[in-house]
């Protein structure tokens, strides 16, 4: 199946215009080179490309974890390059969330505490509301019975689902996933993928979200609405069918 590389028209949830990221001192390296990229509400976009092509770097720029050397990242129409660190953190907390290859759950906290963490940082709900929401999200991902377990008491797939639950905690506009199935077996990978697909599909009717997923997994990429292929920090279009 050939997936479109260009975004449908409309106001994007997240967008880059001429974004470049250069690192290093004496011998600079260009991670991302002038990328223009936009993701619309309700889109599930896969970013593919060979190792070192700049996929994850683009994801970190989109997630405001990193600042572009030139260009601009817009989140829900808002330019972000001039924002202070605290303002970027606040925007990240309310509108964006990450799922990484490694679950990155806080090891001393239970699944529910981990899911409640972004909610507590945002501070919009009281304790009871946060607990109820965390339990609902965990239950919707099949982890209702594991809410009181710590990460070391769960399997790899369960931990990654808790990480997804945490990413959903503040009902973000965009979920950014960096190889979310990279450490999982086939069954768990299937579960995680299906959860993400359902998230986008179910959100289309109300408060549409977008998912941007960086992956090497072509099966996973094939299930996305759109595929963006990156080579040497640039988007190649149209996307190839394999790497």
């Amino acid at each position: 199946m050939s997936l479109p590389a260009t975004a449908p028209q409309g106001r994007p949830l997240i967008e880059t215009r001429g974004v470049t990221r250069v690192i290093g001192g004496d011998i600079p390296a260009t991670l991302v080179a002038g990328i223009d990229f936009a993701v619309q509400p309700g889109e599930f976009v896969a970013v593919t490309g060979p190792s070192g092509s700049g996929k994850s770097s683009l994801l970190y720029l989109l997630g405001l974890l990193d600042k572009p050397t030139t260009g601009e990242v817009y989140v829900d129409g808002k330019a972000t390059s001039e924002l202070s660190e605290d303002a970027r953190a606040a925007l990240r907390l309310s509108s964006l969330s990450f799922v990484f290859q490694f679950h990155f759950l806080l090891p001393e906290f239970t699944a529910m505490d981990n899911v409640m963490l972004p909610m507590r940082a945002l501070g919009k709900l009281n304790d009871k509301e946060m607990q109820a929401r965390a339990l609902d999200i965990l239950a919707s991902l099949g982890l209702g019975d594991h809410a009181r377990k710590r990460p070391d008491q769960m399997s790899g797939g369960q931990r990654q689902r808790v990480a997804i639950a945490r990413a959903l905690a503040n009902d973000p506009l965009v979920i950014l996933a960096d190889e979310p199935t990279g450490n999982l077996d086939t069954v768990s990978s299937g579960q995680v993928l299906s959860i993400m697909r359902n998230l986008v599909d179910s959100s289309r009717t109300d408060h549409a979200k977008a998912i941007i997923i960086v992956t090497h997994d072509l099966d996973l990429a094939a299930k996305a609405d759109r595929r963006v292929h990156i080579v040497d920090g640039r988007i190649e279009a149209p996307a190839p069918q394999d790497d």
């Binding site: 605290d86 953190a89 606040a90 907390l93 964006l96 990450f98 990155f104 806080l106 972004p118 940082a121």
Partner: peptide, 16 residues
Amino acid sequence: TRDIAIMKSLGMPART
């Protein structure tokens, strides 16, 4: 260190 990175990636401000 890793937990700090996670907390910051979630959007927790440096002062917190």
